[in-house]
Design a protein around this nucleic acid. Structure first.
Length: 236
DNA sequence: GGGCAACCAAGTTACACGCG
DNA sequence: CGCGTGTAACTTGGTTGCCC
């Protein structure tokens, strides 16, 4: 099966990447003082699920940034939005309206524990007033607890910001390759995977915390580019 | 069945603060 | 000052749904 083989190759390449960067990181241990590449692609893994025929951790989300013309956001800018606030008013929390990943994880927590009454505005709108943010703080903290403990890898891809960037290409194809959406599952997620409670069918069925590209075909050639980019990456 | 508003996904920016 | 950070709000592109 061709897809199975390409997935194996992807994981193998990511093992290479892991050696190159000196191991997976967790957001709880990260700061902006670390030597992040300016621009890149990130891969989050589940801490407690493994691939079917291997002891490798399963990938759970792929993302990137600087996909619009002229963008100046860095890889770390994006990662810290997922991590959330370390101190200040929303200490230990974060802003799920600036990070879809946070939004989706929180939403799944809400669904799983039937907390819709407590969090009627979760994910609604692109901003919220202080009072509402404080009402949502406890859930933001749960989300932070979850996200900050996910091991992740990052790939240095430092081309110009644009929708056609190599970052966007690698992200899109990795998602399309790994997605189990409307396909025979490869490395099916565990029954207790939080994403099974997502409101999004694409998340539930793809097995990834991604919505875009889960229903697309992938271009096997992207793995060659990935291999080349791994050479461009170094440790933090 | 084209136009348009509403909405959504995901990332982006602006600006103030604190600290070495 | 420069950098990392906190916080609020925006942009772009895509989809949906309605209404003539």
């Amino acid at each position: 099966m061709e897809r199975q083989r390409d997935i194996d190759r992807l994981y193998h390449l990511l093992e290479k990447l892991e050696e190159t960067v000196g191991g997976k990181q967790k957001l709880k241990d990260c700061t902006g003082y670390m030597d992040w590449p300016d621009r890149g692609v990130y891969f989050f893994f589940t801490p407690d699920e493994h691939r079917d025929a291997d002891d490798q951790l399963r990938i759970t989300r792929i993302g990137t940034h600087a996909v619009s013309e002229g963008s100046s956001t860095s890889l770390w800018d994006r990662l810290r939005t997922h991590r959330g606030a370390k101190r200040g008013t929303y200490e230990g929390g974060g802003n799920h309206r600036g990070s879809v990943f946070r939004k989706r994880v929180g939403e799944a927590f809400v669904e799983r524990a039937s907390l819709n009454d407590e969090y009627p505005h979760w994910g609604k709108g692109s901003s919220a007033k202080r009072e509402r943010r404080l009402d949502e703080l406890e859930m933001e903290r749960r989300v932070s607890g979850y996200l900050r403990d996910l091991p992740f890898l990052w790939l240095n891809v430092d081309d110009e910001p644009s929708a056609e960037s190599q970052r966007a290409y690698i992200e899109r194809n990795t998602i399309a390759l790994l997605s189990n959406y409307q396909r025979e599952a490869v490395d099916a997620r565990a029954d207790n995977w939080l994403g099974n409670h997502s409101r999004s069918k694409k998340i539930r069925e793809s097995g990834l915390w991604n919505v875009n590209h889960v229903d697309e075909d992938y271009d096997p050639d992207f793995l060659d580019l990935l291999r080349d980019q791994i050479e461009e990456t170094s440790s933090v």
